[in-house]
Amino acid sequence: MSASASNAVARPVKPGRTTQELRRVISSKIGWIACGVALVLVIGPLLDIVWVVAYNGAAAFSPKLFTTSTPPAGVGLLNAIEGTAVISIMAMAIAVPIGVGAGIYLSEYGNNKLGNSIRFLSDVLTGTPSIVLGYFSYIVLVGGLGWGLAAPAGAVTIAILIVPYLARITELALRQVPVAMREAGFALGATEPTVVFKIILPGAASGVMTGALLALAISVGETAPLIYTAGFSSYPLDLAHPVHSILHSQIGYLTYVIWSFIEQPDAASHALAFAAAFLVMLFVLAINIGVRLAVKRK
């Protein structure tokens, strides 16, 4: 911001100015006001969303939210919280090894045509609407392979969605590690896996962690790819047969509660939808703000 610039704008309009100068100064001021209003209109709705969700969500809070399930089984969100946790953890378990592995390949060995085409196709996958991925999983995993509506089909769909993000962020993080570190490792006689796992990955650990956390936030906030893969259930996990229940029964999740309960006519359902939105927003915003603050501090 140069000092001369702000002086030119802030100087009071002198009577000696020509009409043309006056017009330019005034239209510049109008331009700045319009830009300021635009910024307010961009940030304002975000603040209003946070306020509306926090206000209505906090009003709906009670201990029963965490001990009972959605109606008709109860008056809480236990099943949805469990389901979101199960689906997200499964999705991360599938996506992190693939995404980080792909990121390592692209950063270390991907400076060629093959690497470029993988990068390009990865971008295409990022741009694919999530409902298209959901429908693909519905016909292939749920129907074709007979997995049925259950957590595995949902988790694989979410994994397809977040692997490209993980690969891209991992690649960027690994490229930050100086080449000299790699050379030092090889000079000591280390093999490729040793250099990657003992030198490069630890050096880029914070970047890779950032990517994983952002991917987790995405998977917690997604709805469309889960509707026809995970189904929905108003009952919590059957703790007597947890594995069977996770693999073969429909499962609830928070974003579904937001979508379906706000469209019910009664106030209790609306309160539940806002409570679910509050939990999702809290998680997503906490991760995103935390990551950005941590990155800035370095």
């Binding site: 709705p45 975000l46 969303i49 509306v52 706000i262 806002f274 939105a277």
Partner: peptide, 14 residues
């Protein structure tokens, strides 16, 4: 930037 991370279904709710 945070506007971009608000889940789609929360935009719908709002």
């Amino acid at each position: 930037e945070l506007v971009a991370v608000v889940p789609s279904v929360v935009f719908g709710l709002w």
